[in-house]
Measured scan of single mutants.
Amino acid sequence: TIEDAIKKLLKLAQKGQPYTFGDFTVTSEEEAKKLAKWLKKQL
């Protein structure tokens, strides 16, 4: 689910690992949080 993807994304971001989700490449926890907010709006 999208919720699971968001959780995984935040965990990876906390470890400092870049994470690619579709067109987004997230390289920081701050970016992960922005992406998570955006994804929730898409639901």
Rank of each mutant, 00 (worst) to 15 (best):
K7N: 08
W38N: 00
D23R: 05
K7D: 07
K41G: 05
Q14R: 07
K7R: 11
K8P: 01
E31P: 02
E3C: 15
E29A: 10
Y19P: 06
G22C: 15
K7A: 09
L10T: 01
K15M: 13
K34L: 09
L35M: 02
T20A: 06
K40Y: 14
V26T: 04
L39Q: 00
K37V: 09
L9K: 00
A36Y: 14
K40R: 12
A32L: 10
A13G: 06
K11Y: 13
S28P: 04
W38A: 01
D4S: 10
E30N: 08
I6L: 11
L9V: 04
Y19K: 02
L39W: 05
E3A: 10
K40I: 14
I2Q: 02
K41M: 12
L43Y: 08
A32E: 01
I2D: 02
V26Y: 04
L35Y: 02
A36H: 05
K8D: 02
E31D: 12
K34H: 06
F24H: 03
K34V: 05
T1M: 09
L35E: 00
A5F: 15
W38S: 01
D4I: 06
T20V: 10
L12T: 03
L10E: 01
L35D: 00
L10C: 11
F24D: 03
Q17Y: 15
P18A: 05
K7L: 12
T27A: 06
Q14M: 14
Y19M: 05
V26K: 04
K37F: 11
I2C: 14
L9W: 08
A13I: 12
T25M: 10
E3V: 14
K37R: 12
S28H: 02
G22P: 05
G16Y: 14
F24V: 04
T1H: 05
E31Y: 11
E31W: 14
K40V: 12
Q42G: 05
T20G: 03
L43C: 09
W38Q: 01
W38F: 05
T1K: 08
F21W: 13
K8V: 12
K11H: 10
I6M: 06
D4R: 13
L43Q: 04
K33C: 15
L9G: 00
P18G: 07
L35H: 00
K8T: 09
K34R: 08
G22V: 12
L9S: 01
A13K: 02
A32F: 09
A32G: 02
I2F: 10
D4V: 04
L39N: 00
L43H: 05
Q14G: 10
I6R: 01
F24R: 00
K34Y: 07
F21A: 03
E30W: 10
W38Y: 04
T20M: 08
A32M: 12
D23P: 13
K41Y: 12
Q17H: 11
G22Y: 14
V26Q: 02
L9A: 02
T25W: 09
K37H: 08
E3R: 13
A13E: 01
W38G: 00
K40A: 13
E30V: 09
K34Q: 09
